[in-house]
Simulated scan of single mutants.
Amino acid sequence: MTATHDPVRVWHRLADTSVLLDGFHALKHAVRFQARIPVAVTIDRGAALALAEELATDVRDALEKLLVEVPEATFKALVPRPHPTAVAALAVRPARAANLETLARTPRPAPVVVLDNPRNLGNAGAVIRLAAGFGATGVVTTGTLDPWHPTVVRGGAGLHFATAVERLAVAELPPGPVFALDPEGEDIRGVKLPDEAVLAFGSERSGLSAELRDRTDHLVSLPMRPQVSSYNLATSVAMTLFHWSATGGGAASAEGSGTVPGGPDIRPA
């Protein structure tokens, strides 16, 4: 990963086929998880490297090689909604074949999360960020939402590169027992979720589709106070993955220190 001498030309050539990393934290995570990044720009290289020195020393040297400073007007022309950190980059999307191989591999060290017909781009991004944090094998969406949409990637803070993210039909879901969240299901507190589980969550508005429900092996529910309608989708995923890890889940519970070689990074993106 090396900086280019003509970042604007490279940006325009690759923008339509690349993943936009919008902000310092998205770039930081993409670098950590070995994304291919052909171009990265900022309006203040010194400030960006100082941020790396403060929050992510493990990627500071890589960012020093990658980042090219451009005028503010140029930056705003390249990035329609600039992140407050004034850092942006383009990354190569992981090969679909490689992601599908990861999702299909058994036995798995951690569950796959399935979002069935999700509607909210920000929620989908938050789920991908959660899944990466818990060490989930991947996140699959069904329906029309593109999990690599720029708004989803922004919400995921670059952590698409830390897990396998793909859109599939219900009939194409990875192997493994499907545990779907549903208000009528068995209380999850009495259920041990296996590492091979496929954890399915219905859409924010209409719940599980009939097709996904037919594919389900176990319906489970989250504890909820009476007269409370529902949880936010990302909250439901977080509670379910925490239950998996707290009851003996694989890699996430074994490695759950939440730190990286550069030290703790607990600030919100």
Score class of each variant (00 low, 15 high):
Leu55Cys: 09
Pro84Ala: 06
Ala91Asp: 07
Phe33Lys: 06
Ser253Leu: 05
Arg267Thr: 12
Thr247Phe: 12
Gly156Asn: 03
Leu219Asn: 03
Pro226His: 02
Asp44Leu: 10
Phe33Ser: 10
Met224Ile: 12
Asp16Arg: 14
Pro174Met: 02
His160Ile: 08
Lys65Tyr: 11
Glu101Lys: 12
Asp195Leu: 08
Phe75Ala: 07
Arg108Pro: 01
Trp148Cys: 11
Glu186Lys: 13
Ala124Cys: 15
Pro174Gln: 03
Ala48His: 01
Val31Ile: 15
Arg225Lys: 13
Lys28Leu: 12
Leu100Tyr: 02
Trp11Lys: 05
Arg154Phe: 14
Ala246Phe: 05
Glu255Ala: 14
Ala35Tyr: 00
His149Pro: 09
Ala47Tyr: 08
Val41Ser: 04
Thr144Gly: 08
Leu63Asn: 00
Ala131Val: 08
Arg213Pro: 02
Asp6Leu: 10
Pro264Ala: 11
Glu184His: 13
Leu222His: 09
Val113Phe: 01
Thr57Glu: 11
Glu255Asn: 13
Ile128Met: 10
Ser209Phe: 12
Val152Asp: 01
Val114Asp: 07
Val228Cys: 08
Asp61Pro: 07
Gly135Val: 02
Ala30Gln: 00
Thr163Val: 10
Val112Ala: 04
Val237Tyr: 00
Val228Ser: 11
Leu27Glu: 02
Asn123Leu: 06
Asp16Leu: 09
Ala91Pro: 03
Leu208Cys: 11
Thr137Phe: 04
Ser209Asp: 13
Ala132Met: 04
Ser203Gly: 15
Pro109Asp: 13
Gly23Ala: 07
Asn123Ala: 09
His5Arg: 15
Leu78Glu: 06
Leu193Cys: 07
Ala3Asp: 12
Ile43Cys: 13
Gly258Tyr: 03
Ala48Asn: 02
Arg167Pro: 01
Gly256Gln: 07
His5Asn: 14
Pro175Trp: 05
Leu219Pro: 02
Val112Asn: 03
Leu78Gln: 05
Pro175Ile: 06
Pro107Asn: 07
Thr151Ala: 15
Val68Trp: 08
Pro118Leu: 05
Ala35Gly: 02
Leu130Glu: 03
Ala200Tyr: 05
Thr42Cys: 02
Ala246Gln: 05
Glu186Met: 12
His243Asp: 06
Pro118Asp: 04
Glu255Trp: 12
Ala124Met: 13
Pro183Val: 09
Ser245Thr: 14
Gly190Lys: 10
Arg154Ile: 08
Pro194Arg: 04
Leu241Val: 04
Ala169Tyr: 09
Ala197His: 06
Leu21His: 06
Val87Lys: 07
Arg225Thr: 15
Ile188His: 02
His160Gly: 09
Ser18Thr: 10
Val228Leu: 12
